[in-house]
Design a protein around this nucleic acid. Structure first.
Lengths: 360, 360
DNA sequence: CGAAACAATGAAAAGGTTTGCAGAATGGCG
DNA sequence: CGCCATTCTGCAAACCTTTTCATTGTTTCG
């Protein structure tokens, strides 16, 4: 049998309450007693029963994390960040994998609710309404997705895409294609939108942008997109993510084309493998672990506020605003590597202009 | 406030006990009552408080999983398998990341013990003694490491390495190098041992095996090993894992050598990226998710047995043997791809023999 | 018809902890 | 010297559920 607080109390000759206080709120107990009790507890190897504690405090000391696919290194990174920060704050983490299935997502989240203080939904595939419903049942924060009124941690997808486009334009590209991700993906919507509005808000009259359509966000999707990119006459193709970009690179090579000479290629994510291939992939680095850490911070803010709200009614307004439905956007970095370069059509940059003029 | 069993009891006009039974052990309650109570509970959205339940039953319905690095896709896969199987069995999973630090490993495991029914240690970096100590405190199973007396799920590392060697020998290689992983790695010990004994138990008098030493199990480790491999005069190099193999491939290309013409290269793990590079990597596929699933099965066996042991003393002997300290070895598959081929030294295979004869 | 077995339900204890409240002890100050 | 304030400690309730035991009512069989 495990050693309980009762055993420690008997052994050290004080009451249960004193033991509890000596360990949980040391300032309330005389120094001599405190030291004695703490020593006894340590000697006996006492560890409070978390269930009993949770039962009375109403807090479990753990949080839930729901991700679509643990096998995907992207979520592995986020998960690592979440785990590290939670542990530092004395919380443990339940992890659930939805296998990319939107329907099991909310079901899993609901099954977690009862045993956690709050939930982080990372890249959820379910609907806005469903997420909002969940919000009424538990403290919840969104990672890699934005929803008004729900604390959300997102990457600056638009900024990342703009950085990519500027880079390509600076190199001389005037005909650029976008190989999109899944239609239902929130990240893809962000990136595709930034791609589309780019021509409008910039003053590049001669810039031609081609949307190649939606592809599976894997290597195979890129393979598929590569041929369309070549046929489009683009000199550069922006992949939805690194995997797609790698697929494009591979298919190009297979067709005897080389990057960046015949086609510049970019990705998104900066997964480790993007430096393992030749040419190294120019891509946008996303601070994934930081997203995990910030999600935990936001969630713990929420949890803390909730628990205070019931006892302490005087809360500064701006503090409430600061975290209730707040949006935090993480800056991203363009990593310029080998897969992008000056377009080398016949005659170089001038020829590209000609090509455009000819309406090809 | 959440709805408790008391509310349901009052609402449906029965006692607390009846509600509890109607939901947990329906066969003990009259059909009419059962239906009525279940309906009322469902209507009120009643969910049992897991803490209260755990407090009295002593079981938490969750298990702990400790891994060295969540960002490593290898552990992501195992984790996914664990998560899936646990969920199917009605268990939830705590995940902890030790950041490859052996000292925090047991500390983390201990902090989990109090809130889980059992623990899975995946690729633990700590000592045998420490693991054994943990065994006395909680049901525990080992994934990707073997320890006598502790249920262990491992890959057939030796078999995998033998398959690789046979493949290389069949291609005509007679001088093969091994680029090892970390000295402290259990997997590496297995593979290195298999590599060393290979020459002895096989009858390949002319076979020369070169141990290049230990390298970090990452891309950079492979880069480092590549030059040594070239200098050793080997025609094939076996990497500790895929990342090392990829590093070797990259460094070879950088030096103007090509695989498999100038050097055959193999890996271990079959991570997704091994098919993203050219040449595709010949490697050993490890059923990682299955390792996760089997770990859960083994752990749940253990948990179930423990809880029965206290009540029911009559247990068949062989059943106890079957899972108490049992070792389960998962078969692995050689995936032959593009990075291995016939050695093409000057004059082909014959020349290799000459080379060996010359003592080079 | 009576007794015994059985099915269904309720009362109550138990599980380990936190915490409000009250009592005791100590010290300071008038 | 006496009173009050302060500090420390203990008692007991509360958290929500499961489970044992007892009770009631019903059925079956001798």
């Amino acid at each position: 049998m495990a050693v309980t607080i009762r055993d420690v109390a008997r052994e050290s000759g004080v009451s249960i309450s004193t033991v509890s206080r000596a360990l949980a709120s040391p300032e309330q107990v005389a120094e001599a007693t405190r030291i004695h009790v703490q020593a006894t507890a340590a000697r006996m190897g006492y560890r409070p029963n978390r269930n009993a504690r949770s039962l009375i405090t109403g807090r479990s000391g753990s949080i839930g994390l729901v991700v679509p696919d643990l096998e995907n290194p992207f979520f592995g990174s986020v998960c690592k960040g979440v785990q590290a920060r939670a542990r530092a704050a004395g919380y443990t983490v339940f992890v659930a994998d939805t296998d990319e299935d939107p329907t099991v997502e909310s079901e899993i989240a609901r099954s977690l609710i009862k045993q956690v203080d709050g939930v982080i939904l990372c890249s959820p595939r379910t609907t806005d309404d469903e997420i909002r419903a969940l919000t009424t049942e538990t403290p919840l924060v969104l990672a890699n997705r934005r929803l008004d009124g729900v604390p959300s941690i997102i990457f600056d997808n638009g900024g990342g895409l703009v950085a990519v486009m500027r880079h390509l334009i600076a190199l001389g590209h005037r005909r650029v294609a976008y190989a999109g991700g899944p239609r239902a993906s929130w990240s893809n919507a962000q990136r595709a939108a930034a791609f589309r509005v780019f021509a409008d808000e910039q003053v590049h009259g001669e810039l031609e942008l081609i949307d190649l359509g939606n592809f599976p966000p894997y290597f195979e999707g890129g393979v598929q997109a590569a041929d369309l990119a070549v046929a489009s006459g683009a000199t550069a193709v922006v992949g939805y993510n690194d995997l797609v970009a790698l697929g494009i690179l591979d298919r190009l090579r297979q067709r005897g084309l080389s990057a960046p000479e015949d086609m510049s290629v970019t990705g998104f994510d900066n997964v480790a493998v993007s430096t393992f291939v030749r040419p190294n992939l120019t891509t946008v680095d996303l601070p994934r672990q930081q997203m995990g850490r910030m999600s935990v911070d936001a969630l713990l803010d929420l949890v803390l506020r909730d628990s205070q709200a019931s006892t302490n009614e005087s809360m500064p307004e701006q503090a409430a605003d600061a975290a209730s439905g707040v949006l935090q956007e993480l800056a991203v970095d363009l990593m310029v590597r080998q897969s992008t370069g000056v377009p080398s059509g016949p005659g170089g940059r001038g020829a590209t202009h000609q090509l455009l003029d000819a309406g090809v």
